[in-house]
Design a protein around this nucleic acid. Sequence first.
DNA 1: ATGAAACGGAGATTGCATCTCCGTTTAGGT
DNA 2: ACCTAAACGGAGATGCAATCTCCGTTTCAT
Lengths: 228, 228
Amino acid sequence: MAELAEPGRPPLRRDAELNRRRLMVAAREVFRDRGLAATLDDVARHAGLGVGTAYRHFANKEELVDAVFEDMIDQVEASAREAAADPDPWHGLAYSLEKVCELQAHDRGLREVMLGTGKAAQRHALVARRIKPLVDPLIARAKEQGSLRPDVEQLDLPMIQLMVAAVTDQTGEPDLWRRYLRLLLDGMRTQPDGAPPLPAGPALRWRGGLGGGPGENPVGEEPPRSSR
Amino acid sequence: MAELAEPGRPPLRRDAELNRRRLMVAAREVFRDRGLAATLDDVARHAGLGVGTAYRHFANKEELVDAVFEDMIDQVEASAREAAADPDPWHGLAYSLEKVCELQAHDRGLREVMLGTGKAAQRHALVARRIKPLVDPLIARAKEQGSLRPDVEQLDLPMIQLMVAAVTDQTGEPDLWRRYLRLLLDGMRTQPDGAPPLPAGPALRWRGGLGGGPGENPVGEEPPRSSR
DNA sequence: ATGAAACGGAGATTGCATCTCCGTTTAGGT
DNA sequence: ACCTAAACGGAGATGCAATCTCCGTTTCAT
């Protein structure tokens, strides 16, 4: 919404402000296509600027990623909000998942941020905390409605995103994910009588971070697992 | 099965032969726990040997991975063979998937080899070609039986493995995958009337390699993904 | 016009993994 | 026992790729 000068930061010279924006746009594109592993050099060149400039605006890559990521979350949240308003909870749930997965499918950077491929796992907690309150009631309603099998939990959703993202990541096929999301959704529907319950669900917190419980994961990096 | 001296290779001095074996064992363990990214130095140290020794036995890491991987495939094939003999095709199919996923869950290296996280995508084709003939009839039988939804295809199976592996990879939870495999299996069952068909399936060949069509993927290296 | 701000990009720095080299140790034949 | 070829070990050479710095040059704004 706010397309004006950002708050807080002291005003920049006009060219600086412009370049900052160029960098953000370039970063968005580069991260989308090549993932967070892209170099700041890459981003800068894509923006038609020098690396030095990039480093004056953002202390390091993390900072740039954060800046870019801010915007992306808004999109995710928007579709979740839309879904939450759906009178048919099953439809809303399915729609919500489909939208997130669609965003992910187009955006490798987003996948990596959401799934924690890159570091900084606490970003997920952020997402989770904004999305959870929107989706939770949807789940409850869908169970009442009898469409969603009762042993599905809130924490299953990020896992489903994860799985779907893996499909896109591996195959590079831009639409194949739809097939497997459907498979999962069909599995999430209330099953015929006599179907055994789902095996144990996700623990409250997990290494990756996406499914935000209350506590923060102290996860810093990868599991060290020393060799010896 | 063959636990005797390998064929072909000229006989090694006893200590050399022993060390070669030690290296393989160590590699198996290290790759299992830390994935293919592990260093040859790591493997050598784990085997209680020097790097130099490792490099005398294996020209490079790839070669070692191949040697180790050979064995792993046998296990995969064994369970597929067992499943193929199951009189109940649905049960066999489910069992087959469960077994592969279980192996993967315990073995990060195996996940990476099967999913092509590491390079050398043609290894998958190898797996696929050994597994496919076992599983194909199972699928056909399960469809006849009416338990498997008719729009599931052979190429869906590796994708399911992929998704399940992603769960383990991301969460580190050793058993969580069971839940999502179940979800997928339930989605693969014949659906109630009126359910829409699955969206488009996997193309004949895909970047990752696992689902072996006839042609080899000309993929040489990994896509511009570098990380870590 | 002029000084402060911003730029650009070569290259210093860092970090890590692969692989080599050669002095030392060991197996195993005589 | 002795001897030699084979095998070992591991420090370090090599290569590579990414991050970030430095400073001479350009641009803005007054």
